[in-house]
Design a protein around this nucleic acid. Structure first.
Length: 139
DNA sequence: GCCAACGTTGGC
DNA sequence: GCCAACGTTGGC
């Protein structure tokens, strides 16, 4: 099963709002980047991803699960981009800040560190495990 | 608020 | 098809 990282500005869409959306989840729209689109298209129902707050928080705060695979984004007039549906799984015990990730030698290869502007990123199994460990989770 | 990184656009 | 100009994102 693949792992991902979803980036959101908490002022636009926060993990608290994601939790409030409940088990039904919500669509993850607004992606207008071809590489991010490629990642969205590769997602399968059941895949899990980190929920990252950019700008204000700069930290991974929770885990979400893909509950509906790629379908067209009705808010995109060009018709080129799509989205998936995700639901909140849980908040991390301890959020993992960007500073902490950058300070972790085993995570220097993370896309978050190297291409912070990409809004949907793949996360390797090892990176997933290490971040969970930093979050005080058992995985 | 600044600026680097990146993607997109448009003139040639 | 190249590349300069511009807009956006996001860390600092």
């Amino acid at each position: 099963m693949a792992h991902w990282l979803f980036k959101s500005e908490p002022t636009t869409w926060s993990f608290d709002q994601q939790i409030a959306a409940g088990k039904k989840g919500t669509f993850w729209n607004g992606v207008r980047n071809h590489l991010a689109k490629k990642h969205l298209m590769a997602m399968q129902v059941g895949d899990r991803g980190f929920f990252y707050h950019s700008n204000e928080d700069k930290a991974i705060v929770g885990i979400v699960e893909v509950i509906k695979p790629y379908y067209p984004d009705h808010t995109d007039e060009t018709g080129k981009f799509g989205m998936v549906d995700v639901r909140a799984v849980k908040a991390l015990k301890n959020k993992v800040t960007l500073a902490r990730i950058k300070a972790e030698p085993r995570l220097v290869g993370m896309t978050l560190v190297n291409n912070s502007r990409l809004s949907v990123q793949p996360v390797s199994d090892e990176e997933w495990r290490i971040v969970l460990e930093l979050a005080g989770e058992h995985g």
